[in-house]
């Protein structure tokens, strides 16, 4: 049973506002001329996305988004920027020559994703029941249904950690 779309509920309005913030800051990430500002706009984008998850009652995922993406991944990216010799501040040659192709690829990807979501769900409706996104219900589905991807994730993390160590240690040489 699909409820009427008009008038919108408070949750729908908050969700729309948060999505505008997310899309706007995502655009600023790729258009700003300052590399560090791009990383900071990414924080705003991830934060708005976390807010969207909260409105959709995916409570645990929202706080994971804050902890992992806003907390850890952006710090990793800032470290990545600090490792380079590139100067901070306004950089004129930040745009690559591929920007038109990149914009086309991004638009095409967005078109495919939006088409799939709209075609797949159409007017499907699910009520937002608080509690379905709690740590307990997620734990239940991870350890009942998705154990193998969970264990595969640990191998992925291990591989990436060893890769980071090998790359960052200059005294670990490859085979002659």
């Amino acid at each position: 049973m699909t409820p009427a779309l008009w008038p919108p509920t408070a949750q729908e309005i908050v969700f729309l506002l948060l999505s505008v913030v997310a899309v706007g800051s995502a655009l600023l990430v790729v258009t700003t001329r300052q590399l560090v500002h791009a990383a900071l706009w990414l924080v705003a984008c991830f934060g708005a996305l976390a807010g969207c998850y909260l409105v959709l009652t995916a409570e645990f995922v929202a706080w994971v988004q804050v902890l992992i993406y806003v907390g850890a991944v952006v710090v990793l990216m800032l470290f990545g920027i600090m490792l380079t010799r590139a100067p901070i501040g306004r950089t004129a040659d930040l745009d690559s020559g591929n920007r038109v192709v990149a914009a086309l690829v991004a638009l095409a990807t967005a078109a495919v994703l939006v088409t799939v979501v709209i075609d797949g769900f159409r007017s499907a409706y699910t009520p937002l029941d608080p509690g379905t996104g709690s740590a307990k219900s997620l734990g239940g589905s991870i350890f009942r249904t998705w154990v193998l991807p969970f264990e595969a994730l640990s191998i992925l993390l291990l591989a990436a950690l060893i890769g980071a160590i090998v790359i960052s240690r200059t005294d670990i040489k490859g085979r002659e």
Binding site: A72, V75, F79, G80, L83, K136, L138, G139, L157
Partner: peptide, 28 residues
């Protein structure tokens, strides 16, 4: 320019954060 060896510390932090995140649903 900072030293590349600090990258491992940041990456260790990411690994531990992902690790801790899975401990919460498991503990419940």
């Amino acid at each position: 320019q900072s030293q590349i060896r600090y990258y491992v510390f940041t990456y260790l932090y990411v690994v531990f954060a992902v690790d801790a995140v899975f401990l919460f649903p498991w503990a419940t």
